[in-house]
């Protein structure tokens, strides 16, 4: 079994602070991590490797420091790691990113599963997985919370807003997994040392990936950011509701109705 996991290194947005004076984001000192649900994707690939044997390849598109994310994946137990990095990729939107990943995956040879996290915590788009599925011409199962494989048939639970559905297809398939899928293993200390000193991270440039230049990076992106600004905390906007308990609950319910919340 050969399973490929696509991961992204993201700033830990849970650690982001705002400058109390300017209200701007303080990006410095924000730790970089493997996107949490991508870690679930790695874990699921490793779990299947534990069950069926085979190899796990982890790939990421990103700047040189994304190597750290790959080293962690190697320490968790991945066999091979590929860093796709090139200035030519800069400014890629989800479409150009999935195209680039698709080209790289086609160069990796035969595979059974492509696993992605459902969404990244810095962008929250959840788009790269399905777009990659389209590029590779694979069936997809998104929001996966459980995987069972028998021979070349996968049976997966796909989370819905109000429950889940059980779906089945033949391999190969693309999955996007949610965090309920598993609990990612913590890389062992001895394995971290080995991942840094003995394992290799393969670096691929735009040339190695061998894609259409018009479809990568900013050139290959249909979307453009027109404006971006930090969200400033709006202090003191609170409306304190006064009066009897009956009064305040009544006002509150009226506000809920106004905002379509009930």
């Amino acid at each position: 079994m050969h399973n490929i996991v696509c991961i992204k290194q993201v700033p830990d947005t849970r650690e982001v602070r705002l400058d109390p004076k300017t209200g701007n984001l303080i990006r410095e000192g924000v730790p970089s991590i493997i996107n949490p649900e991508d870690k679930n994707a790695i874990e699921e690939a490793l779990r299947l490797k534990d069950e069926f044997g085979g190899t796990v390849t982890v790939i990421t598109m990103g700047p040189p420091q994304a190597e750290e994310a790959l080293r962690e994946a190697l320490a968790m137990g991945a066999d091979k790691a590929v860093l796709i990095g090139d200035r030519a990729f800069a400014g890629a939107d989800t479409g150009a990113t999935s195209y680039t990943l698709g080209c790289a995956i086609n160069k990796l040879g035969k595979y059974d599963l492509i696993l992605c996290g459902r969404e990244a915590i810095d962008g929250n788009t959840a788009q790269v997985g399905p777009q990659l599925g389209e590029i590779l011409g694979l069936p997809q199962i998104t929001y996966v919370r459980k995987v069972v494989i028998r021979k070349n048939i996968i049976e997966a639970e796909r989370a819905l807003e109000d429950g889940y559905e059980v779906v089945s297809t033949q391999l190969p398939v693309l999955l996007t997994v949610v965090k309920e899928c598993n609990e990612p293993r913590i890389a062992a200390v001895a394995d971290i040392i080995e991942a840094y000193r003995e394992k290799e991270v393969i670096a691929w440039s735009a040339k190695d990936v061998d894609g259409d230049k018009a479809r990568i990076g900013l050139n290959g992106s249909w979307t453009r950011i027109r404006k971006a600004a930090a969200v400033k905390p709006q202090k003191g906007k609170v409306q304190i509701l006064e009066g009897s308990v009956g009064d305040v609950t009544k006002t509150l319910v009226a506000e809920f109705n106004k905002r379509n919340l009930l």
């Binding site: 913590i186 062992a188 200390v189 001895a190 040392i193």
Partner: peptide, 27 residues
Amino acid sequence: KKLKIFGIPYDKKYGGAGGSYFEMVLM
């Protein structure tokens, strides 16, 4: 045991991690 922290500074040929006292101290 799964975290593999019992032999950090020792040689790999004895089952160690091949690290140093520094990694042991950090742990």
